[in-house]
Simulated scan of single mutants.
Amino acid sequence: MITEVNSQRLAEDIVRRVRKVVGKSKDMIPLHIPEFTGREWELVKNCLDTGWVSYAGSYVDEFEKDLAEFCGVKYSVAVVNGTVALHIALSICGVSHGDEVLLPALTFVATANAVAHAGATPHFVDACEETLGLDPKALRHHLEETATMGPNGAVNRKTGRRIAAIVPMHAFGFPVDMEPLLELSSEWNIPIVEDSTESLGSTYRGRPCGSFGLMGTLSFNGNKIITTGGGGALLTDNEALAKRAKHLTTTAKRPHRWEFFHDEIAYNYRLPNINAALGCAQLEQLPSRIEAKRRVAERYAVAFADLNGARILKEQPGSFANYWLNALIFDHDRATTRDAVLAALNDSGLMARPIWTLMHRLPMYADAPRADLTVSESLASRVINLPSSAYLAGAT
Rank of each mutant, 00 (worst) to 15 (best):
I2M: 15
S7G: 12
D13N: 01
I14C: 07
I14M: 07
V15C: 01
L31M: 14
K45Y: 10
V60R: 14
D66Q: 15
L67A: 06
F70C: 06
V77D: 03
V77P: 01
T83S: 13
L86Y: 10
H87W: 10
A89E: 01
D99H: 07
A105K: 04
H117N: 13
H141V: 15
E144I: 04
N156H: 01
K158H: 11
R162Y: 02
A164Y: 00
A164H: 02
P168M: 07
E179W: 07
E179L: 11
E179S: 14
L181P: 08
L184V: 01
S186T: 14
P191Q: 01
R205Q: 13
G210L: 05
G216P: 01
F220R: 03
F220S: 04
G222F: 11
I225A: 01
G229D: 11
T236R: 03
K243V: 11
R244G: 08
A245V: 07
T251C: 14
H256N: 12
E259H: 08
E264A: 12
E264H: 11
N268M: 13
R270G: 11
P272M: 03
N273G: 07
S288Q: 14
E291P: 02
K293N: 15
V296E: 06
Y300G: 01
A305T: 10
L307I: 06
L307M: 06
R311D: 15
Q316L: 10
L328P: 03
I329P: 07
D331H: 07
T337A: 15
A340N: 14
L350Q: 02
A352T: 07
A352Q: 07
I355T: 13
I355V: 15
M359C: 13
H360W: 07
Y365H: 09
R370Y: 04
E377S: 11
V383R: 04
L392Y: 00
A393F: 02
T396Y: 13
